[in-house]
Design a protein around this nucleic acid. Structure first.
Length: 425
RNA sequence: GUGGCCGUAGCUCAGUUGGUUAGAGCUCCAGAUUGUGGAUCUGGUUGUCGCGGGUUCGAGUCCCGUCGGUCACCCCA
């Protein structure tokens, strides 16, 4: 049998066939939470093509990015790549159409992104990433709004301040730190790389690199330890505190982010136990639209990305995937085949009333029908019965309470609508 | 791209220093039973032991290669 390609996933309906199989129900639950939270914050959904010109990515990141890309030559001889990130596409769209939209522009997307890399824990060749961005607002109020959206997206999935924390840092703070010690701005990238590897590389190696830019390991550690907020970070903290979200954020200058284009506040979301990779990351990139548009458009910008892979791992770890499965509202039992026509009419009336309903497509033993209703997590079963005098009635059973009611078939849809709009129990 | 570990039924896994015709539980399918049923009982399907080569009288078991998985590194999302 042909297997899926390495790093690509099959998504199964619940119950999934093995413990490590990916659940389409869970994916849908995550997507819906991302969407509803975004809309609640006034963000509009956009999308772009999954396949882009290779040049869109090499322009910004150079040729070395190509080895990380899922790229190929198409039948027309074009060099193309599956999108590895959404920001270049978004920057193009915004640069082209920003005049049609009032500022600030608040947009989100849930693209599937691709990378040609050996897969490992929390990292595949494909994933879905929630992207949210704001354009045209340079005040820290926008940073607070964006981070609040990130927090509430995670809260919407059942996670709390005990589960995750947003570590907030600032490129501007580090830039000031560096400028006080090193006059050469071209050293900034090397400096950021060294700070980024602070917890992973040997202290002597880091120290040596930092001394090249006029600093030292001890100095950098003291700076991180002090966590002195910049004025923009203080505004951010104040605004999040006013929203009651203060416990979700912490100033941590150890966060620096790899991407070269960040300019101001940067942040990453981590699980508190430190068991997983970063859940989400983002920050300000005030120069990027200017760069992508060839200098024609200048818009301050900020955004974040949150992948579905690490998030799903965290939700499973915290036991938050129950309830993510969608359940059926009604299952219509057909134990008496002579009542199939009337039962079909009943199914149709339920569906037209907006009640999700299923039934056996062919003559089936009654216990199997009932077990199917259980498997589909039906809220109610409906069974038509014929009295000795020929009158047909409907027996509606609530599965959780096991209570039953006998009503005329014409009233089944209305009755079920009433039942399913009450909490189960 | 580099390295460690792992590949036995749809799933979870047993399988003795290398020794008959490779097993269990669950799932699935069928039958029985139950009939205010969410059970129970019986039977059945499914394996080139990842693939290829080697050692051996004999390989699921040992060796080499390869593919896949997994974890770490590199890098990043």
């Amino acid at each position: 049998m042909i297997q899926p390609l390495p790093g690509f996933r099959d998504f199964y309906p619940e119950p999934v066939p093995s413990p490590d199989a990916w659940s389409c129900d869970l994916r849908q639950h995550i997507f819906e939470t991302w969407r509803t939270t975004s809309r609640r914050y006034g963000f509009r959904e956009y999308d772009g093509p999954p396949l882009e010109s290779l040049e869109l990515y090499t322009l910004k990141s150079g040729e070395e990015i190509v080895q990380q890309l899922f790229n190929f030559t198409d039948k027309g001889g074009r060099e193309v790549a599956m999108r590895p990130e959404m920001t270049p596409t978004l920057a193009r769209m915004v640069a082209a159409a920003e005049r049609h939209y009032r500022k600030p522009i608040k947009w989100f997307a849930i693209p599937q992104l691709f990378r040609y890399e050996k897969q490992q824990r929390g990292r595949l060749r494909e994933h879905f990433q929630f992207n949210a961005d704001i354009f045209g607002e340079s005040s820290p109020g926008a940073d607070a709004e964006l981070i609040a959206l990130l927090i509430d997206s995670l809260r919407g999935l059942g996670l709390t301040a005990d589960d995750f924390v947003i570590r907030v840092s600032s490129r501007r703070a580090w830039q000031a730190f560096l400028e006080a010690r090193c006059a050469d701005p071209s050293r900034a990238y090397d400096f950021y790389q060294a700070v980024d590897k602070l917890e992973r590389e040997k202290p002597e190696v880091i120290d040596e690199k930092l001394r090249l830019v006029g600093s030292s390991l001890q100095e950098v550690r003291e700076f991180i330890q002090a966590s002195q907020p910049t004025s923009e970070i203080q505004t951010l903290l104040d605004e999040l505190g006013a929203r009651g979200l203060g416990s979700f954020v912490r100033v941590d200058y150890g966060v620096i982010r790899g991407l070269a284009y960040y300019t101001g506040i940067v942040f990453e979301a981590f699980d508190r136990k430190g068991k997983f990779r970063a859940l989400a990351g983002g920050g300000r990139y005030d120069q990027l639209v200017h760069l992508v548009s060839g200098g024609k458009v200048n818009l301050p910008a900020l955004g974040f990305g949150m992948g579905d892979v690490v998030l799903a791992e965290l939700l499973k770890d915290r036991g938050l995937v129950r309830g993510a499965t969608q359940s059926l509202s009604a299952y219509v039992l057909i134990e008496e085949e002579s009542l199939r026509a009337e039962s079909l009419r009943c199914v149709q009336s339920l569906r037209e009333a907006g009640v999700s309903a299923d039934f056996p497509l062919a003559a089936t033993k009654s216990d199997k029908q009932f077990k199917r209703a259980v498997e589909l997590a039906a809220r109610v079963t409906v069974k038509l019965e014929r009295a000795p005098d020929g009158a047909i009635s409907a027996r509606v059973r609530e599965m959780t309470s096991r209570s039953e009611q006998v009503i005329p078939p014409d009233l089944v849809a209305a009755h079920c609508l009433g039942l399913i709009h009450r909490p189960p129990g």
